[in-house]
Design a protein around this nucleic acid. Structure first.
Ligand code: NAD
Ligand code: NAD
Lengths: 217, 217
DNA sequence: CTGCCATTGTTAAAAAATTCACTATGCATC
DNA sequence: GATGCATAGTGAATTTTTTAACAATGGCAG
């Protein structure tokens, strides 16, 4: 009776589901078999209703009076999000951050496999990082088509992000995760996400300032 | 008549303000002197009312019939957020990501100065990165107090994040930006922000999947 | 097999955030 | 100095998201 809802799913829900998955994995490692929304909520720093609601978008995964089976819930979320498969990814801009991401194993663990890396700097082309050779950006469109890549990661300087995005789109990419602090323009059918860490710095600074101001009153 | 409002300011507003600042800086470099909420909204991918509302939390910065003076608006936002000063920051966990952040100059440009870096790996201690010597984590609490550090960045593996946070709190830190994918527990008076990039990967993957499902119907 | 307990799934209420629509006002022009 | 125009500021309406409350139900004890 549930199976597929046509409600729009809030962006914030996806964000939280990522957190749930992470916490569930830790529990699984610790051998915890069952968890209630109450306890999970506590660990994730959210409201228990919120968890039940988030999950309700996708189906019924719990057992009333018992809770959620940790392993099954994790699997259910992964499936719901379309993460129960491998996604081919390319990375554009092999600088400090690009290298860190290439060497990072969490992506692969989640099914995102970086199959190629590109840079426009001749000194970087040919270099090998994490078992991957850096290629010239001009080869990007053909490579991504040949390798059936669906997602592109941009880690170029901000003023180059649009150019990188254009290459990716030329290569038939369907989604972009942009780490550069600049907006890019793309047609409607491309999903774009911006990873911005400076806003978190702003937020912490602002909160500290606020508390100090409040404290003075 | 405005000066200080006691409304709670939405987290999302701060996030957008960071985007506005970035776009305003680009305009300033291009020599653009004045911008309307309409145009800025277009560049930032938001609604013009949203911009006016966001700014209204802090004051009146525009000129009716004209728009906003780019430089003044940028300054006004920076001031409103408490970014018109220098923030001393320390970083814990000098791995791939930690190094990338240490070498990154956007932080400094925004007034966040990393004054010390710590790691527990004896092979890393003593190494110099971006003009900063890596110190032993055991020295962290004393150092942060001595250097008047207010913000800590965590880039350790997730299972070490809590420990890193404890050291930071021992050092009298007021806010934490955690790049590790694990929740940390802290007393109320510490501001914590989680930088999570995997949820953006999830989101793009999910959106692509959704579109494909929709397309089939 | 019955009834109780715990905890989910869900509906309703509340709160928060966004967008709209309009009012106010600074600036330029005549 | 008055008039028109463009655009900011703002209160109200709308939409979205979160939280609370509770009815439904699986498991377990007796
Ligand atoms: N370093 C960090 O910790 C960090 C953190 C968050 C965000 N960022 C952002 O990520 C981006 C990269 O940061 P970084 O520190 O790695 O910078 P970087 O200068 O070290 O690396 C940028 C790389 O992109 C390459 N490049 C430039 N134009 C290109 C193009 N058109 N096509 C392909 N490659 C191109 C350069 O050759 C260079 O290798 C920046 O936008 C930065 O603001 C960095
Ligand atoms: N690499 C990336 O691109 C990336 C991106 C996003 C998030 N992250 C997250 O950031 C964190 C760091 O990632 P990484 O790739 O740099 O890992 P890494 O293993 O390269 O670096 C971790 C560093 O932390 C140090 N460390 C461990 N325990 C410590 C402790 N108790 N005190 C001080 N230092 C300690 C280690 O010695 C090591 O140098 C991880 O949690 C990762 O999930 C990484």
């Amino acid at each position: 009776m549930h199976q597929l809802k046509f409600e729009r799913i809030p962006r914030a829900t996806i964000s939280r589901l990522a957190v749930y998955v992470q916490e569930l994995e830790v529990m699984e490692q610790q051998g915890i078999k069952v968890i209630s929304s109450e306890k999970l909520a506590q660990l994730c720093g959210v409201n228990p209703s919120q968890i039940r609601k988030d999950l309700a978008y996708f189906g019924e995964f719990g057992v009333r009076g018992v809770g959620y089976y940790v392993h099954e819930l994790r699997e259910a979320i992964r499936q719901s999000l379309g993460l129960d498969r491998t996604w081919n990814v390319v990375l554009v801009g092999v600088g400090n951050l690009g290298r860190a991401l290439l060497r990072h194993n969490l992506l692969r663990k989640r099914g995102f496999v970086i199959v190629a890396a590109f840079d426009c700097d001749p000194f970087k082309i040919g270099e090998e990082i994490a078992g991957l050779e850096v290629n010239c950006t001009s080869k990007l469109p053909k490579s991504t088509r040949d390798m059936n890549v669906e997602i592109g990661i941009i880690t170029t300087p901000p003023e180059r992000a649009q150019r990188a995005a254009n290459y990716l789109m030329e290569g038939g990419i369907k989604g972009i995760v942009n780490f550069a602090p600049s907006r890019i323009s793309t047609p409607e059918n491309i999903s774009v996400e911006y990873v911005d860490f400076i806003n978190h710095m702003f937020s912490v600074a602002f909160n500290i300032t606020q508390k100090q101001i409040r404290g003075l009153l």
